[in-house]
Design a protein around this nucleic acid. Structure first.
Lengths: 112, 112
DNA sequence: CTCCATACATAGTATTTCTATGTATACTAC
DNA sequence: GTAGTATACATAGAAATACTATGTATGGAG
């Protein structure tokens, strides 16, 4: 499991990218994230919902209640246009930081 | 400037990578980080020193007082063996998270 | 009925971030 | 001498954040 600041830094970009693929509900989102990370990211629901709540509050996602085939209540989340924009921005930011780190590592490897 | 959780997530790997190139003092570290990030990371000294302090407390760096040519007092920092190990671990962790994100973005791009 | 998995919620503790503010001083310009 | 600037380090504490612990709810299986 990555360090908690890495989990924190990647949680929003991950959630936004899963939602970019289409509307989904919270519990399924957990599974998607576990899958795409090959098990590396194994979030609890108590971790996920506050982040979703905040994304909604900030206008990046919207939600609606729905029902599953078996009649279970589910809360479905969907990206908003703002969420789409933020998705791109965060991707750019992460990529810039990643580039910086890789450059630093290259320099470190050369010297050491 | 990246979001604060991205700054937080990358600060230690960046510092450790600069120190891996050799002992240096705090103020110069700031400059190195500004350079390697092309200005993207423009940390204040008040941001840097608490992180250095913590790294030292956790045994990843050691420090000593020295003097510059002009007589200025400087605190020099050096990576410890533990710091070397943590440097590698954090590089692995970051890379795994990065890989997960890029996979998620690829999937997101295919669907959208 | 009980248990389990599914599904969502959130208070609150613990932790973290980093700004604001501080001290110190070498050098430069006037 | 003095003022200003850059260099150099320090840290308290306010604000923000993370996420665990605990909660409710319920469909399905045994």
């Amino acid at each position: 499991m990555p360090s908690k600041d890495l989990v924190a830094a990647s949680s929003r970009p991950l959630i936004l990218s899963v939602l970019r693929r289409g509307e989904t509900y919270g519990y399924a989102l957990l599974g998607e994230i576990r899958d795409v990370s090959g098990g590396e990211m194994n979030w609890s629901d108590g971790m996920l919902y506050p982040v979703l709540r905040k994304l909604e509050k900030e206008g990046m996602v919207t939600s609606r209640w729905g029902l599953s085939d078996e009649g279970r209540r589910r809360r479905y989340y969907q990206l908003t246009p703002l969420g789409q924009t933020v998705f791109e921005e965060e991707r750019q930011q992460w990529s810039r930081v990643d580039k910086t780190l890789r450059k630093a590592w290259r320099l470190a490897d050369q010297t050491a």
